[in-house]
Design a protein around this nucleic acid. Structure first.
Lengths: 223, 223
DNA sequence: TAGATTGTTAATCGATTAACAATC
DNA sequence: TAGATTGTTAATCGATTAACAATC
């Protein structure tokens, strides 16, 4: 459809545009210029215009962008206008946190089922969803037209379950396990590696400390 | 200390190197060349060497890299050799998921406290940590030498709490709330915006579908 | 029409890859 | 010494920013 092969950097920014436009919409703002949006979002106006023009001209010269229209169009690009049937593998705290986040359903992500291997969790009901054993996985995916799976299980089991998911026809895996999954090229994986995120934070806080220390040392030399 | 201003792209990759080296270490691998590591990690050998040389020469010509040494050094760069005192604001499923992830403590991230506004959660004990009310926040931070906070609360309260955290001397915020926080420049924020992550996945699965459809259509035209 | 702001091309900047001399 | 592999410079590629003509 569109010009094909949008860069990863652009796609990475789209959800943030979507969020800001949603907020503007709630505030009742009707139109916005790339310049004003750039100030709110702390990115360049040039980048906003460049990014949006990957998908076609959503704006109007001399006017700017219609907030509601742009919000809707970015929603379509991101696919939040469609329904995505989702299951969660791993019904621990993280799996339950996802199940309990109501806003996902507003965006078309319907949580159809939850699975775990822990017999103490099987049978429990979270937000109206009964936790099943993983034995039922393949049947459930077929019966419920499931395309997406969130993987919130320890890394030791993740690869094995991922293989089963792919085999059962899952097309997208939201991977919270601390491994890189090997999947066929028509299956997409989005990784959320929390421990890596925390280490990036740690790096930055350490390098900030070092920087400060250096400045102090320089100050001492001068005195 | 080091040459200063390492690019964000490089820092983003360091934790993944660290993870792979840790796995190699467990496997008992003593040394590895950039070429072999590149094949395992599916990045170029050039990139690995370039990345590592931002921090100095960890390898040896004709030999490669000593796994244990490199692992330790990257650990130091990331700051996982130091201790970081951490609190969790928001003791819901997500906050508890973080509290329960034992590996963080192995990397020096010590969870000192948990906080919530929900009176039904206050007083509960999660992994040996009692959940406190947010009133005690400032005192607790001062008493326990806390530098880091994970923010796992709804977006409505996030900015307000972030201000309080900054005021109380917190230097790093691991932000799971769906807002961009405004903090002074000596405070670092690492965002984990799960809904944005899910939308990126959605985009990719949709564009994969579109791609396939196109190919099918082309096939039909030819027949 | 004049003013504003987009869409788009051109210039710059940064990051990745390739190549190879240095050296273990 | 010969072979292997790094560290590092140079070449390429891609992404961001600047500029401005098109146009509402």
């Amino acid at each position: 459809m569109e010009g094909r092969e949008i860069s990863k950097a652009v796609i990475g920014r789209l959800p943030r545009y979507y969020r800001y436009l949603g907020e503007l919409l709630e505030l009742g703002v009707e139109r916005i210029s790339s310049n004003e949006l750039s100030m709110r979002m702390k990115v360049t106006a040039s980048q906003i215009r460049q990014d949006l023009n990957n998908f076609g001209g959503f704006g109007q010269q001399g006017y700017g962008y219609n907030v509601k229209y742009l919000y809707t169009e970015i929603g379509k690009i991101l696919g939040v206008d469609r329904q995505h049937n989702l299951i969660i593998i791993g019904a621990g705290n993280l799996g339950q946190a996802i199940a309990n986040y109501a806003n996902f359903e507003k965006r078309g992500f319907m949580i159809k089922g939850m699975f775990d291997i822990n017999p103490r969790l099987i049978g429990l009901v979270v937000r109206g969803i009964e936790i099943c054993g993983v034995d039922d996985l393949e049947q459930f995916i077929a019966d419920n037209d499931v395309q997406m799976a969130a993987l919130t299980i320890p890394k030791t089991k993740a690869s094995e379950i991922a293989d089963r998911l792919v085999h059962a026809g899952i097309k997208a895996i939201w991977n919270f396990a601390h491994v890189d999954l090997n999947v066929p090229e028509d299956v997409v994986v989005e990784n959320v590696h929390l421990s890596e995120s925390l280490m990036r934070l740690s790096y930055r806080v350490c390098s900030m400390q070092d920087q400060k220390k250096e400045q102090e040392d320089e100050g001492e030399e001068l005195s």
